[in-house]
Nucleic acid binder design. Sequence first.
DNA 1: CACAATAGACAATCTGGTTGTCGAAATCAA
DNA 2: TTGATTTCGACAACCAGATTGTCTATTGTG
Lengths: 154, 154
Amino acid sequence: MTRSGADLALLLLGGYRTLVESVVAELAARGHDDVRPVHDFAMRAIASGADNASELGRRLAVSKQAAAKTIAVLLERGYVRRGTDPDDARRKRIEVTPLGWEVMHQGEAAFDELRAQWARRIGADELAALERQLAVLVGDDAVRPEAAGPAAHD
Amino acid sequence: MTRSGADLALLLLGGYRTLVESVVAELAARGHDDVRPVHDFAMRAIASGADNASELGRRLAVSKQAAAKTIAVLLERGYVRRGTDPDDARRKRIEVTPLGWEVMHQGEAAFDELRAQWARRIGADELAALERQLAVLVGDDAVRPEAAGPAAHD
DNA sequence: CACAATAGACAATCTGGTTGTCGAAATCAA
DNA sequence: TTGATTTCGACAACCAGATTGTCTATTGTG
């Protein structure tokens, strides 16, 4: 089969979607039917130190306004809470709640389960090779969005 | 390095984005600065037979209203034209214009060039294996959206 | 101190999607 | 053949997730 570059793009997108759809379905089945992928990614960024809207925007490579909106829905759903920063009165410090952690853990477990299924289907070595090659192609930073993507200048 | 399932998802998304961003940048550099990936996909679907809004919606797995909007922008940009269907007065037959074909060809060339670069970086065999494995994982239909995806019930 | 940079709020806007409704045309079943 | 159902495309309202631009409060710096 001759594959075009566009087919490659579609394969990559298809792979991503397959994973993400399964995970949100799994989360919905466990009662978290209002979680979107972006929420999970945002919570992980918050948990790993992006504890204010501007910083979160930078890490996710979106504008701080977009990040603030995401935080607003996370707040509303109870997945994060907000306090003040003792060192900087401009900042509102964001913190992941236990409920947020629960969703993240379930999401991670679902992702890992999917990955294990893939490993069974194509072989663990092949999957590892696939990941390694993608990492090379993408520039490994892609896994850490703060270093990649079109920076939002804000 | 231990990779989680979520990292795998990010890698796939990152790969897709890397490709698509390069291609739209390349198209923009050649004067088509108003083309979005969805436009290219839609034109290809139209060219391959989805010559009316309802059918296009089915193929792209979106609602016919969304497809109609996409067609409207393609019309406005001059990438497709619209006529009547001699056999069914309800249908408006859509056709890709020469300008549309030009964009598709340039996009395809850009994708293929990117794919060749990747092949040089990780090896042609490895890239072929990666595509083969992704195809298995995704169910090859992902390359032909008309057969996959959450159907828009309309 | 004065001024530049930063955080976050708010508004307007854009894109790409959704549902729902509708009239016109086509198809199907009695 | 005719009446019911389906399908096509148009229109409206809406939504999610982004954008840019403007504003105030606060902080850091020459």
